[in-house]
Protein backbone atom coordinates (compact mmCIF):
# COMPACT_ATOMS: atom_id res chain seq x y z
CA UNK A 1 0.00 0.00 0.00
CA UNK A 2 2.83 2.40 0.86
CA UNK A 3 4.44 1.59 -2.49
CA UNK A 4 1.26 2.64 -4.29
CA UNK A 5 0.93 5.82 -2.22
CA UNK A 6 4.55 6.68 -2.96
CA UNK A 7 3.95 6.07 -6.67
CA UNK A 8 0.89 8.34 -6.69
CA UNK A 9 2.79 11.08 -4.86
CA UNK A 10 5.75 10.78 -7.24
CA UNK A 11 3.57 10.91 -10.35
CA UNK A 12 1.66 13.98 -9.16
CA UNK A 13 4.90 15.72 -8.24
CA UNK A 14 6.44 15.03 -11.65
CA UNK A 15 3.30 16.14 -13.45
CA UNK A 16 3.14 19.48 -11.68
CA UNK A 17 6.87 20.32 -11.81
CA UNK A 18 8.85 21.95 -14.62
CA UNK A 19 8.69 19.69 -17.66
CA UNK A 20 5.58 17.94 -16.35
CA UNK A 21 2.80 19.28 -18.44
CA UNK A 22 -0.36 18.41 -16.52
CA UNK A 23 -1.40 22.06 -16.61
CA UNK A 24 -0.83 22.26 -20.36
CA UNK A 25 -3.97 20.12 -20.63
CA UNK A 26 -6.02 22.90 -19.02
CA UNK A 27 -4.46 25.45 -21.37
CA UNK A 28 -5.36 23.25 -24.33
CA UNK A 29 -8.93 22.91 -23.02
CA UNK A 30 -9.19 26.70 -22.77
CA UNK A 31 -7.82 27.14 -26.29
CA UNK A 32 -10.17 24.61 -27.86
CA UNK A 33 -13.19 26.24 -26.23
CA UNK A 34 -12.03 29.70 -27.34
CA UNK A 35 -11.64 28.47 -30.92
CA UNK A 36 -15.25 27.29 -31.17
CA UNK A 37 -16.94 30.72 -31.42
CA UNK A 38 -14.61 31.64 -34.28
CA UNK A 39 -16.02 28.73 -36.24
CA UNK A 40 -19.62 28.97 -35.05
CA UNK A 41 -19.96 32.74 -34.86
CA UNK A 42 -20.35 34.92 -31.78
CA UNK A 43 -24.08 34.29 -31.34
CA UNK A 44 -24.45 33.85 -27.59
CA UNK A 45 -27.76 31.98 -27.84
CA UNK A 46 -26.23 29.39 -30.15
CA UNK A 47 -23.14 29.07 -27.93
CA UNK A 48 -25.35 28.54 -24.88
CA UNK A 49 -27.17 25.74 -26.65
CA UNK A 50 -23.96 24.07 -27.83
CA UNK A 51 -22.04 24.89 -24.62
CA UNK A 52 -22.16 21.48 -22.89
CA UNK A 53 -21.14 19.71 -26.09
CA UNK A 54 -18.25 22.12 -26.66
CA UNK A 55 -17.04 21.73 -23.09
CA UNK A 56 -17.25 17.94 -23.26
CA UNK A 57 -15.37 17.78 -26.58
CA UNK A 58 -12.70 20.12 -25.23
CA UNK A 59 -12.28 18.09 -22.05
CA UNK A 60 -12.13 14.84 -24.03
CA UNK A 61 -9.39 16.14 -26.33
CA UNK A 62 -7.47 17.73 -23.47
CA UNK A 63 -7.48 14.57 -21.37
CA UNK A 64 -6.34 12.62 -24.43
CA UNK A 65 -3.47 15.04 -25.02
CA UNK A 66 -1.83 14.44 -21.65
CA UNK A 67 -2.36 10.66 -21.75
CA UNK A 68 0.70 9.74 -23.81
CA UNK A 69 2.92 10.97 -20.95
CA UNK A 70 1.34 8.34 -18.69
CA UNK A 71 3.81 5.53 -19.48
CA UNK A 72 6.12 7.18 -22.02
CA UNK A 73 8.24 9.19 -19.57
CA UNK A 74 8.66 6.17 -17.29
CA UNK A 75 9.59 4.06 -20.28
CA UNK A 76 12.25 6.54 -21.38
CA UNK A 77 14.04 6.69 -18.04
CA UNK A 78 13.71 2.98 -17.36
CA UNK A 79 11.51 3.15 -14.30
CA UNK A 80 8.68 1.39 -16.16
CA UNK A 81 10.76 -1.81 -16.26
CA UNK A 82 11.25 -1.60 -12.51
CA UNK A 83 7.52 -1.04 -12.00
CA UNK A 84 6.68 -4.08 -14.15
CA UNK A 85 9.20 -6.26 -12.31
CA UNK A 86 8.23 -5.16 -8.81
CA UNK A 87 6.31 -7.37 -6.38
CA UNK A 88 3.27 -5.09 -6.27
CA UNK A 89 0.62 -6.43 -8.68
CA UNK A 90 0.92 -4.56 -11.98
CA UNK A 91 -2.85 -4.09 -12.16
CA UNK A 92 -2.80 -2.13 -8.89
CA UNK A 93 0.20 -0.11 -10.02
CA UNK A 94 -1.57 0.79 -13.26
CA UNK A 95 -4.66 1.84 -11.33
CA UNK A 96 -2.50 3.98 -9.04
CA UNK A 97 -0.77 5.63 -11.99
CA UNK A 98 -4.10 6.36 -13.65
CA UNK A 99 -5.47 7.78 -10.40
CA UNK A 100 -2.44 10.05 -10.06
CA UNK A 101 -2.86 11.13 -13.68
CA UNK A 102 -6.52 11.90 -13.13
CA UNK A 103 -5.73 13.93 -10.01
CA UNK A 104 -3.03 15.95 -11.75
CA UNK A 105 -4.58 16.35 -15.21
CA UNK A 106 -8.31 15.56 -14.90
CA UNK A 107 -9.29 17.53 -11.82
CA UNK A 108 -7.85 20.85 -13.17
CA UNK A 109 -10.10 20.42 -16.23
CA UNK A 110 -13.17 20.19 -13.97
CA UNK A 111 -12.00 23.21 -11.98
CA UNK A 112 -11.61 25.21 -15.20
CA UNK A 113 -15.17 24.46 -16.34
CA UNK A 114 -16.89 27.39 -14.54
CA UNK A 115 -14.60 29.93 -16.21
CA UNK A 116 -15.19 28.40 -19.63
CA UNK A 117 -18.92 28.21 -18.94
CA UNK A 118 -18.82 31.98 -18.48
CA UNK A 119 -17.25 32.36 -21.92
CA UNK A 120 -20.05 30.28 -23.46
CA UNK A 121 -22.76 32.18 -21.58
CA UNK A 122 -23.89 29.13 -19.58
CA UNK A 123 -25.82 29.92 -16.42
CA UNK A 124 -24.94 28.53 -13.00
CA UNK A 125 -27.13 25.39 -13.26
CA UNK A 126 -25.80 24.46 -16.67
CA UNK A 127 -22.19 24.98 -15.58
CA UNK A 128 -22.76 22.91 -12.45
CA UNK A 129 -24.35 20.14 -14.54
CA UNK A 130 -21.41 20.04 -16.95
CA UNK A 131 -18.88 20.09 -14.09
CA UNK A 132 -20.73 17.27 -12.33
CA UNK A 133 -20.90 15.11 -15.45
CA UNK A 134 -17.21 15.79 -16.10
CA UNK A 135 -16.41 14.76 -12.53
CA UNK A 136 -18.26 11.49 -13.11
CA UNK A 137 -17.00 10.96 -16.67
CA UNK A 138 -13.32 11.98 -16.76
CA UNK A 139 -12.17 8.96 -14.69
CA UNK A 140 -13.61 6.79 -17.44
CA UNK A 141 -11.65 8.77 -20.04
CA UNK A 142 -8.42 8.35 -18.07
CA UNK A 143 -8.87 4.66 -17.32
CA UNK A 144 -9.87 3.65 -20.85
CA UNK A 145 -7.21 5.97 -22.23
CA UNK A 146 -4.64 4.16 -20.13
CA UNK A 147 -5.19 1.04 -22.25
CA UNK A 148 -4.27 3.00 -25.36
CA UNK A 149 -1.28 4.55 -23.57
CA UNK A 150 -0.01 1.11 -22.56
CA UNK A 151 -0.40 -0.20 -26.11
CA UNK A 152 1.29 2.85 -27.60
CA UNK A 153 4.29 2.65 -25.27
CA UNK A 154 4.93 -1.00 -26.08
CA UNK A 155 4.85 -0.16 -29.79
CA UNK A 156 7.11 2.89 -29.34
CA UNK A 157 4.55 5.12 -31.00
CA UNK A 158 2.79 7.86 -29.10
CA UNK A 159 0.63 10.77 -30.05
CA UNK A 160 -1.59 10.13 -33.02
CA UNK A 161 -1.74 6.35 -32.68
CA UNK A 162 -2.93 6.82 -29.12
CA UNK A 163 -5.65 9.22 -30.27
CA UNK A 164 -6.87 6.81 -32.95
CA UNK A 165 -6.94 3.94 -30.46
CA UNK A 166 -8.64 5.75 -27.61
CA UNK A 167 -11.16 8.09 -29.24
CA UNK A 168 -13.56 5.34 -30.42
CA UNK A 169 -13.49 3.82 -26.93
CA UNK A 170 -14.56 7.09 -25.38
CA UNK A 171 -17.65 7.61 -27.57
CA UNK A 172 -20.09 6.14 -24.99
CA UNK A 173 -18.73 8.44 -22.29
CA UNK A 174 -19.19 11.42 -24.59
CA UNK A 175 -22.75 10.41 -25.47
CA UNK A 176 -23.94 10.00 -21.91
CA UNK A 177 -21.91 12.91 -20.54
CA UNK A 178 -23.46 15.37 -23.00
CA UNK A 179 -26.89 13.73 -22.65
CA UNK A 180 -26.83 14.09 -18.87
CA UNK A 181 -25.80 17.75 -19.00
CA UNK A 182 -28.43 18.52 -21.66
CA UNK A 183 -31.03 16.72 -19.56
CA UNK A 184 -30.16 18.86 -16.57
CA UNK A 185 -30.41 22.07 -18.61
CA UNK A 186 -33.33 21.60 -20.99
CA UNK A 187 -34.90 18.20 -20.40
CA UNK A 188 -37.09 16.44 -21.47
CA UNK A 189 -35.20 13.40 -20.22
CA UNK A 190 -34.61 12.98 -16.48
CA UNK A 191 -31.05 13.81 -15.38
CA UNK A 192 -30.76 10.58 -13.40
CA UNK A 193 -30.96 8.10 -16.28
CA UNK A 194 -28.01 9.20 -18.43
CA UNK A 195 -26.05 10.21 -15.34
CA UNK A 196 -26.34 6.74 -13.80
CA UNK A 197 -25.20 5.17 -17.06
CA UNK A 198 -22.25 7.58 -17.10
CA UNK A 199 -21.30 6.57 -13.55
CA UNK A 200 -21.66 2.91 -14.54
CA UNK A 201 -19.31 3.45 -17.50
CA UNK A 202 -16.77 5.01 -15.16
CA UNK A 203 -17.01 2.11 -12.70
CA UNK A 204 -16.65 -0.48 -15.45
CA UNK A 205 -13.60 1.30 -16.84
CA UNK A 206 -12.07 1.37 -13.34
CA UNK A 207 -12.11 -2.43 -13.47
CA UNK A 208 -11.28 -3.10 -17.12
CA UNK A 209 -8.66 -0.38 -17.61
CA UNK A 210 -5.98 -1.54 -15.16
CA UNK A 211 -6.28 -5.20 -16.23
CA UNK A 212 -6.05 -4.45 -19.94
CA UNK A 213 -3.21 -1.98 -19.46
CA UNK A 214 -1.26 -4.39 -17.24
CA UNK A 215 -1.77 -7.21 -19.73
CA UNK A 216 -0.54 -5.15 -22.66
CA UNK A 217 2.47 -3.94 -20.67
CA UNK A 218 3.39 -7.50 -19.64
CA UNK A 219 3.18 -8.85 -23.15
CA UNK A 220 4.60 -5.84 -24.89
CA UNK A 221 7.69 -5.04 -22.85
CA UNK A 222 10.38 -7.60 -23.32
Amino acid sequence: MTALAALIRRDIKIALRVGGGALIGVLFFLTVVVLMPFALGPDLALLTRLGPAILWLGALLASLLTLDRLFMADHEDGSLDLIVMSRTPLELTCAAKALAHWLAAGVPLILATPVLGLLLNLDATATAAVALTLLAGTPALTFTGMIGAALAVTLHRGGLLLAVLVLPLSIPVLIFGVAASQAAITGPLAFGTPFSILCALSLVSLVIGPFAAAASLRHGLD
Binding site: L27, V34, P37
Partner: peptide, 21 residues
Protein backbone atom coordinates in the same frame (compact mmCIF):
# COMPACT_ATOMS: atom_id res chain seq x y z
CA UNK B 1 -23.48 39.57 -19.68
CA UNK B 2 -20.06 38.88 -18.22
CA UNK B 3 -18.68 37.85 -21.55
CA UNK B 4 -19.43 39.11 -25.02
CA UNK B 5 -17.49 37.73 -27.99
CA UNK B 6 -16.67 41.17 -29.26
CA UNK B 7 -13.50 42.03 -31.11
CA UNK B 8 -11.46 43.71 -28.41
CA UNK B 9 -12.24 41.38 -25.53
CA UNK B 10 -11.60 38.42 -27.79
CA UNK B 11 -8.21 39.71 -28.97
CA UNK B 12 -7.14 40.25 -25.38
CA UNK B 13 -8.30 36.72 -24.57
CA UNK B 14 -6.12 35.38 -27.40
CA UNK B 15 -3.22 37.46 -26.08
CA UNK B 16 -3.79 35.88 -22.66
CA UNK B 17 -3.72 32.40 -24.20
CA UNK B 18 -0.44 33.27 -25.91
CA UNK B 19 1.05 34.44 -22.61
CA UNK B 20 0.03 31.17 -20.98
CA UNK B 21 1.49 29.18 -23.89
Amino acid sequence: TYWEWDARLTSVLILFLMYLG
